[in-house]
Design a protein around this nucleic acid. Structure first.
Lengths: 209, 209
DNA sequence: GCTTTTCCTTGACAACTGTCCAAGATTCTT
DNA sequence: AAGAATCTTGGACAGTTGTCAAGGAAAAGC
């Protein structure tokens, strides 16, 4: 009897938790969009609420405070972003194909998800000032590094050679290129972006022996 | 007579302008320190004034508005930062010396001027959201690129070869490394920074044929 | 259908923001 | 030394911020 009651209560509790979590991520997504639009410095709770279908008060029902909310939004970002190149790696049969499709995807997400990417860089930078972001940022950064490494090490494999640098260096090189391309993309300088696109294959080749 | 009066007035006017400019840069420097300490998102005019010897009202006597003030501070930053490696280049007589001294200077300023550097990245990122910063940011970025190029092209010359990539790619590669090293430095992970230091010479060699 | 729990809105709060201004303090001119 | 120009202060302003709580709306449980 108690067992039945328990499992029933459990089911109820679980359902409530699920619902709670669902709404949390829903609000976190709204937060993500607001952050991507305005940047960290200008994002307020009322603005976030306006990008959702709720009023601003509800945010404190689902989140302890603003930091909690933004942290959750950052985690949402990670879910979106970190496996982007995996299918490219999976379907590649020749080094040339892998390189070309990687470059294509690279510049595709650059313009497609530009606001999300600038948000990521904004938050990573925020972590230079606010230590409470650092753990999450470092974790995401390491996932991005691993993602890049899967591409480059596979590329080296296909070319029957080895990467020329460590995962860390490989990552920061490509990330540096991405960051600058993003700046010029948002500054509306397509020529510069095109130039960088032209150079990227050469850089990739530089990254393997 | 009018001429004498004019030149005298001119002198007075010039002195006033000089004084005005001197105080402007004085306040811009205070702004720079505040920004480096708190980051863009948390820097207020009253906080800036507290880092100077004046009250907050004076800022609007010397600057049109907050943007004007911050823009001036950014220009101050540039004056500090953009010729850092020039003497290293000037005194280098062998490729090994140039490379070693560059690496040393690289990691020296990383820890010495860490807060200033994080400010730079903060403002560069801010320009992804606020177009009114972009012109200044792009200009400073191009100066940084030129600075790095002077080092690498000279290094190639000393080694009797050529740079392997364009100035832009060369810059973003080293800047990406710097940025990540800065993150780990501020996160208090000296091991990671040391690792990156160990790898930097190899990267430099990768950047020339 | 009624009660209890969960969810959401609304308005208030204190603190903080950029901006402006009146009036005092300081410096310069004559 | 007196008057004029310049500089600086400190307070007021309107608007925004994160936070919270009282109470209504909706849903769930019985």
């Amino acid at each position: 009897m108690t067992q039945v009651a328990d499992s029933k209560q459990d089911r109820i509790a679980r359902r409530q938790v699920d619902k709670f979590e669902a709404r949390r991520t829903e609000l976190a997504v709204a937060t993500l969009h607001t952050l991507a639009e305005l940047g960290y410095a200008r994002t307020s709770l009322r603005e976030i609420a306006q990008n959702s279908e709720f009023s601003h008060g509800v945010l404190h029902y689902y989140f302890a405070d603003k930091r909690d909310l933004i942290t959750e939004a950052v985690r949402q970002y990670e879910a979106v972003c970190v496996t982007r190149y995996d299918e490219v790696v999976a379907r590649a049969t020749s080094p040339g194909q892998l390189r070309d499709e990687f470059v294509a995807m690279f510049f595709d997400t650059l313009s497609e998800d530009a606001t999300l990417h600038r948000l990521w860089y904004d938050l990573r930078n925020q972590s230079l000032f606010d230590s409470s972001f650092r753990a999450d940022v470092l974790e995401i950064d390491s996932h991005r590094e691993a993602m890049v490494w899967r591409v480059i090490s596979r590329y080296a494999e296909l070319r029957d050679t080895e990467p020329a640098t460590s995962p860390a260096t490989t990552y920061v090189t490509l990330d540096g290129i991405f960051q600058r391309a993003l700046l010029h993309h948002l500054t509306d300088r397509p020529e510069t972006v095109a130039e960088m696109r032209g150079e990227l294959p050469g850089v990739i080749d530089l990254l393997v022996r």
